[in-house]
Amino acid sequence: MAGRAVVGTMKFTWRALESRFGPMEADAITIADCRAHIEARRKAGIKDGTIHTELGHLRMVLLWAERHELIDKAPAIERPTKPEPKDAHLTKDEARALIDAANVPHVRLAIMLMVGTGARNEAAMQLTWDRVDFDRRMIQLRNPFDKQRRKGRATVPMNDRLYEALEEAKKGALSPFVIEWAGKQVKSIKKGLKAAGEAINRPDVSPHMLRHSAAVWLAEDGHSMHEIAQFLGHDDVKTTTKVYARYSPTHLRKLADSLAI
């Protein structure tokens, strides 16, 4: 997993796993151990989504150990059911208000970039000016020199407002990174985003919500699931359909019409 964002998350999940699983032989782990972990974490107030991730990382490491013949066979890891994706999203009016409420230039630009491209937070923070094509009005979210596998990084066109914002930002750029502060790359806008969200009475806003909102708007405008999947960088249109088809005004419409009496 070297070089992938999940490495940072795994450092935190190991803190939750180490006391129970650390002293154990890998192939001695049982379903009962998994259930004991689940019960203890729930009693500690931890949500099932977090527990699902923790045990998923344990499973990932055990399967790796099996592939590299460090253990004969990876034991079965039981996890709680993965919760449904969070449904909260911004309306376009709320997104406009959020941009206006962002009083720091790089936070405002990051919001515009993420809602204008549907980019994931990491992709937006790592975007460099050499991948912003002003002549063709295209943005390449995937770094062609990065050999690590990255989720959801497509090449997408920019709308007029985003084009103007990026063009203005480029004039004062002090680093290769599009989202910068004082000439240095910005790795997180969570603090500034939260402040802007609180100003418009949406304290729940997050970088992921910006991407999710963009996808919802695309579906609401009636674009096909295949087009939306390509725009978001989804490998499988089934993922897009499962989450966003219900927002489309045409979804199941013909079936409903067939039931008219």
Rank of each mutant, 00 (worst) to 15 (best):
A2L: 00
A2G: 06
G3T: 07
G3S: 11
R4D: 14
R4K: 12
V6N: 00
V6W: 01
F12S: 12
F12D: 04
A16P: 05
R20A: 11
F21S: 11
F21M: 10
P23F: 08
D27H: 00
A28G: 13
T30M: 10
D33T: 01
C34V: 07
I38C: 08
E39M: 06
R42W: 03
R42M: 09
D48E: 03
D48N: 12
G49K: 04
T50C: 00
R59K: 13
M60H: 13
M60T: 12
V61Q: 01
L63K: 13
A65R: 03
A65T: 02
E66D: 04
H68P: 09
I71D: 05
K73G: 01
K73C: 02
K73F: 00
P75K: 05
I77Y: 01
K82H: 10
L90T: 03
T91D: 10
K92Y: 05
K92H: 06
A95R: 00
L98V: 00
A102T: 06
A102N: 04
N103V: 10
H106T: 01
H106V: 08
V107W: 00
R108C: 06
A110H: 04
A110N: 07
M112F: 02
L113R: 05
L113S: 09
G116I: 02
G116P: 09
T117Y: 08
R120I: 10
M125T: 14
L127E: 00
T128N: 09
W129N: 08
D130L: 09
R131E: 02
D133Y: 02
D135A: 13
M138T: 15
L141N: 07
K147G: 10
R153D: 00
T155D: 07
P157S: 11
M158I: 15
N159I: 11
N159H: 13
D160N: 15
D160C: 13
A165Q: 12
L166N: 07
E167S: 14
A169K: 02
K171S: 01
A173D: 08
F177P: 09
E180Y: 09
W181D: 01
W181Q: 06
W181T: 08
W181A: 03
Q185I: 10
K187R: 15
S188W: 06
K190N: 15
K191T: 13
G192W: 04
G192V: 05
L193Q: 03
G197Q: 06
I200A: 06
I200T: 03
I200P: 10
P203L: 05
D204H: 04
V205D: 04
S206N: 04
P207V: 06
L210N: 01
L210S: 07
L210R: 01
R211P: 15
R211S: 14
D221F: 12
G222M: 15
A229S: 15
L232Y: 00
H234A: 08
H234F: 14
H234D: 13
T241P: 03
K242Q: 13
V243G: 05
Y244A: 05
Y244T: 05
Y244V: 04
R246S: 13
Y247V: 03
Y247S: 07
S248W: 11
T250D: 12
T250I: 10
H251N: 13
L252Q: 15
L252W: 09
L255Y: 14
D257E: 14
S258E: 10
I261V: 02
